[in-house]
């Protein structure tokens, strides 16, 4: 093990450059997948004949597939049918597809946890069904969803590392390039990489706990 050789300033900057890409991929994927998940979750909760079942089936299929397969699929298979994008967006798309399915399930069960009595009360006080969803059910459900959603975000950040298989220049890819130089760099480099993921994820989970306590 060679900590001094592994932690040269140029190696550390190289890792940070990779981490920056990781964070970008994660941020975009969170924004898109969360938006889609709310729509899908609400549509499934609303039990619209046909739509809810179709969405339910799609979500169930995606949730039961490995993310790695979806990454290979968006990057290698979609171009075959004419849908082309570069590595970065292929990784984002794969993450959005997968995480939106996971998150929509959280959104749906969050909505289901709001007592039916409240909906009836809101409706009888003159609100429309959509108004009731938007002003009464969704805000309460979102608050309850905070812990599972944040832990899904943590999963997402970790999952971005799978994009190493399509050589996206993110943290794990940069770590492997450094590892290729000398076997003695492997453990120190992985240790540094682990610390980087840990710091951000742990911070996220602390924030989540704070939010939880505030609302409880």
């Amino acid at each position: 093990m060679d900590f001094i050789g592994a932690y040269t300033p140029s190696h550390l900057t190289f890792l940070l450059e990779g981490f920056w890409v990781t964070l970008q991929v994660a941020f975009l994927s969170i924004v898109f997948s969360f938006s889609i998940a709310i729509v899908v979750g609400v549509l499934r909760y609303a039990k619209i004949p046909g739509v809810s079942q179709v969405l339910g089936t799609i979500v169930e299929l995606i949730r039961n597939l490995p993310l790695l397969l979806i990454i290979f699929f968006t990057y290698f298979a979609l171009p075959e049918v004419g849908i082309k994008m570069d590595k970065f967006w292929a990784a984002v798309l794969a993450l959005v597809i997968f995480e939106a399915a996971m998150l929509s399930e959280i959104v749906r069960s969050g909505l289901n946890s709001v007592e039916k009595g409240q909906i009836e009360a809101a409706r009888s006080s003159g609100l429309s069904y959509v108004q009731t969803l938007w002003h009464v059910v969704l805000p309460q459900a979102l608050r309850r969803m905070v812990p599972p959603i944040v832990s899904q975000f943590i999963s997402l950040l970790k999952d971005t590392s799978l994009a190493v298989v399509i050589a996206l220049p993110e943290l794990m890819n940069h770590a492997q390039i450094i590892n290729g130089r000398n076997v003695n760099y492997v453990i120190p480099t992985f240790l540094m990489v682990a610390v980087m993921y840990f710091v951000v994820n742990y911070a996220l989970s602390v924030v989540s706990k704070r939010l939880e306590n505030k609302h409880a």
Partner: peptide, 26 residues
Amino acid sequence: AGMGLVLMLSATALAGCGGGSKTEGG
């Protein structure tokens, strides 16, 4: 925000359909 989401979702759905039809002859 709501409208944006619906648009995005339908775009995704459309992209999916387009892809499917191309598989046959493409």
